[in-house]
Simulated scan of single mutants.
Amino acid sequence: MALLFVAILAVVFSVVSSGVVPAYHGYGPVHHDPLEGVDYYAHPRYSYNYGVADGLTGDHKTQHEVRDGDVVKGSYSVAEPDGTIRVVHYAADDHNGFNAVVTRIGKAVHAAPVAAAHGFLGHGHY
């Protein structure tokens, strides 16, 4: 019996020291990660809309975006201080990268310049 124990101990020692792991044949418990080899990639897909229209502050903007896998498409608009509306249509994917087309709607309105008061600017009288 002692000789059998020494023989088993010698085999275990040689396997451990050699780095060779014996094959599992379905006998006894083996502790493996149950999620090993599971593909965690989920196909991303969403669509959303967002908008603000505040007459008191003049804040007006919208956004819409759709994603299907690695392709994203969308647009947004924002009211500019000059009275125009900037509209941006964009798309992004693995093949073409990110592309955007920017347009403006409306005519820019700028405040009239304020005339300098006589005697304060450019005349040397302070």
Rank of each mutant, 00 (worst) to 15 (best):
A91W: 00
G122M: 15
A115R: 02
N99S: 11
G124F: 14
P22H: 02
D82L: 03
Y24F: 02
S75Q: 15
L9E: 06
L9Q: 07
L121W: 03
T84L: 15
S77H: 02
P34D: 11
H64L: 04
G26A: 05
N99A: 10
Y50T: 13
S77R: 01
A7C: 13
A79H: 07
G97Y: 12
V102Y: 02
V52R: 01
L9M: 07
V52E: 00
G58E: 10
Y27H: 08
G83M: 07
D93C: 10
G106D: 13
V66F: 00
G124R: 08
D94Q: 13
F13P: 05
R86Y: 07
P29D: 06
V30F: 03
P81N: 01
Y76G: 05
V21Y: 01
H89K: 04
L35H: 11
H43V: 09
Y27Q: 06
Y76C: 04
V15T: 12
D70H: 10
P81W: 00
V52K: 00
V66L: 02
V102F: 03
R45H: 08
A23Q: 07
G37C: 10
A115D: 12
G51M: 08
V88G: 04
Y40Q: 11
F98C: 14
P44K: 14
A2P: 05
S77P: 03
V30E: 06
G119F: 05
F13L: 14
D82E: 04
G19Q: 04
V11F: 02
H123E: 14
H123P: 09
Y24M: 02
G119T: 09
F98P: 08
G28Y: 01
A92G: 08
A112Q: 07
S47H: 04
G55V: 08
T57E: 09
Y76F: 08
P113N: 01
F98D: 14
D93F: 02
I8S: 12
K61N: 05
A111N: 12
